[in-house]
Design a binder for these strands. Sequence first.
RNA 1: GCCCUUAUAGCUCAGCUGGUAGAGCACCUGAUUUGUAAUCAGGGGGUCGCGGGUUCAAGUCCUGCUGGGGGCACCA
Length: 648
Amino acid sequence: MSQISLTFPDGTKRDYAAGVTPAEVAASIASGLTKKAISATVNGAHFDLQWPIKADATIAIHTMADDAQALDLIRHDCAHIMARAVQEIWPDVKVTIGPVRDYGWFYDFDRAEPFTPEDLGAIEARMRQIINARDPVRTEVWPRADAIKFYEAKGEPFKVELIGRIPEGEDLRMYWHGHWQDLCRGPHFQHTGQVPADAFKLTHVAGAYWLGDSTRPMLQRIYGLAFKNREDLKAHQTMLEEAAKRDHRKLGREMELFHLQDEAPGMVFWHPNGWQIWRTLEDYMRGRLRHAGYKEIRTPQVVDRVLWEKSGHWEAYRENMFIVEVDEEGAKEKRINALKPMNCPCHVQVFNQGLKSYRDLPLRLAEFGSCHRYESSGSMHGLMRVRGFTQDDAHIFCTEDQIESECAGFIALLSSVYKDLGFDKFDIKLSTRPPVRIGSDETWDKVESALTNAIQHLGLPYQINPGDGAFYGPKLDFKLTDAIGREWQCGTFQVDAQLPVRLGAEYVGEDGAKHHPYMLHRAILGSFERFIGILLENYSGRLPFWLAPRQMVVSSIVSDADAFVYETTNALKKAGVRAEADTRNEKINYKVREHSIGKVPVILAVGMKEVEERTVSVRRLGDSKTEAMTLDQAIAEFGFAALPPGGQ
RNA sequence: GCCCUUAUAGCUCAGCUGGUAGAGCACCUGAUUUGUAAUCAGGGGGUCGCGGGUUCAAGUCCUGCUGGGGGCACCA
């Protein structure tokens, strides 16, 4: 047998017989490593200890100290152990696939009866038995015909189909966890006892289409969490509980911001406090847009289908549109309109009024545009996915040469807005030309490089999603990261050479001839509804002072202080602060508690001491200390704090 | 849209194997004038999501619809 050379992380090389396994390599290095080794990285691929290495390679042996590999094996072995447990309890259940995911894994099963929470407990118990049995894990590469025959005999149709989808030439790997068998890419541990028995938890069952295809059968997916030890699992569960506490739907009720009801699913009823947040945010955005050279417009909600036919939406998007029929008396036929699902066609109508010159470009038209989309019933979620929403929309009409500078200007504006709103980190994703597209390659080259140059000149990192652009042009998506690490896609910047042509937008160029402008679709917040939801969850409802719907409550301690409470409240209001007086006959403890729960950023307490000294006692949310301040100081400080960032 | 699950007072929830509803908070009234996260006492409040069905009897069992939740699909 021939020799191969393996290169270790420290650069040393050793020779082995071809076909040596990582387990044998580990044993050759140190006897302690034989026991501690769990897997290896061979030429960048995660290898099972049992897999033969056939040629020269770089190799690194992993132990449980390597988090990434250890967690990958723990979660993947959990998936197999769970599937084995399920089939041991219910032998007629068919298995499908069970991949690793963030913090755990899932496995999809085909079973007539639904799994119940009690079932999950029984499965967990059986999993622990399997782990405690320390059953060996074995793997073999099989010819596909044998594997297909094997699964047909076993009555596992999903596995048979899966084999048919694995590319020819790829090794078909069979795994055994004890007596139980599964088709799997691997790698895995060497025995089931290597999975920590106290660091996993089955969390919930959900439906999932086979192969993610809604025309295929609905399977039952069981989700599990798994970590290296009990403490990590507990920490993660605590984190999930904390995340649930800041759910915007819960905060919306507690802070009296908005509600949703049966008669208008997916449409928001904004209450005074919530609408105050909205208006503050809208005023802020309006100021930012004005400074960035945008002109604000307003276009109709209900538009005749003729326009949607021209724009192409009637054909492509009709099932998601709210159709409005008007039956005019005496008219020969009904007039069919649609609530606008987006603003772009209306903005082109504004552009088309009057003759435009190249001197008018770039023309930036902004609208806080109310849109309605008939979203599928299962997709709605609080403020995050609704049927009626308002975009911070704008369309920039420009020439090809202006795309790059417009893009750069947009990203600068977006990053500044995100920073003001408390999001320091965001990622950019560039989606490039798809296989099916319109326009010449030359134009695509030019437009894609305009976007790339704009990002690069700003020195920002970005990822490329090849082929993910729209058929009419490339796009940038902007994803921000919130306080607990979740990512939200909000901003977008799309280049469109199509709609201006379809809707006949033209300008007179320097050459005196008519040209179609490019249209740049862009949004920073995405929608007010969703962004307010994100803000609430990011801040856990404790919005920064300028955004808080109720900024200050001036609370009396004794009723003799009431006059000074009103004087203070009125002075603060005059200074632009959203201040309220609370002179109810209640203890100061009661008032402090109530307004703290109400997430009011600043509570002022006024007793006789303050009345005599013309001071206020300041208590900031989340801080149990108080601070004495003269009334004049308080007015100056909080009057300033109430201004939006940038002093607009 | 699909799978599972769920719907009881303004909110959070209890109501066992069917016997016509209960708690805490909130709300109202009274007392209390209080120093930084709940003062005490009393009171009012629910056609148990909606429509059918089984039963002597339905919040409870069956069924349809609607909304919510967890996912999947969708998000041009």
